[in-house]
Amino acid sequence: MRTTTRRLALAGVGAALLLPAGIGSALAADGDTNANLAPVALNGVPASGTAMASVRGTTLTVTMAANGLLADAPHAAHIHFGAEARNECPAASDDASGDGTLNTSEGVPAYGGIVVSLTKTGDTSPASGLAVDRYDTAPGGAIAYQRGSIEVAPEVAQAIVDGKSVVVIHGVDHDGNGTYSGSTPSDLDPSLPTEATDPALCGVLAAAPSGSVAAGAGGTAVGAGAQDGLMLLGGGLLAAGVGAAGLVARRARASA
């Protein structure tokens, strides 16, 4: 009796553990996405880049290259998504404080919260969003980042495949003094200057094109003219024959 109860309990735990995986594979789709990373409005970094996320089930591989960032300074980078967000990069109109720059919080209505922390090592959950010592430091202003085996929730994988997630690389040297400085504290961590966390580059991870391209009109296909003529002739004769048959049938009915 006792043994049976324990077995039942174990079975229940097993089912509970298996269930999320089952739901995950049912919901998540495979897909390839690309983001063109452009300077965030108002913050004006002279940088650019691209990021690609390959989704296989609930596993991501993220690869990104960027240049023109503040060199040798940590650049936190995340994938953002919010069910209530606009799923796009922020615009100048998102400057709620009116101070002429956009901080990370002001971008949330556009790109939502953090769903993946693109750290170089260790945890990749939102909890590592500000783990400054584990992000790329952009030697020479360039980031060359790749990380695979990133596990995400099924709804996050789906949002990425659906083109609703946004890559943001943070860190803006507003005053151009070559380091994160200034008296304005970060909206995310008051012990850091806002320069360390303000969004620098942003791009929506958009789904890659699906399938083939129709890139020919057949003007050089062999025998085009003759074939077209035969098509018309054949179609015409076919129509004539069918038409005559219809007429015969009508007459047959009329005389019956």
Binding site: V222, G223, Q227, L237, G241
Partner: peptide, 25 residues
Amino acid sequence: AAAATALTGAAVLAVGLRGPDDGPP
């Protein structure tokens, strides 16, 4: 007669559809 005309049309149409289409650019 109608059937013959239709059959002829279908046959000519088939030739047109089949065509030597394996020599594109």
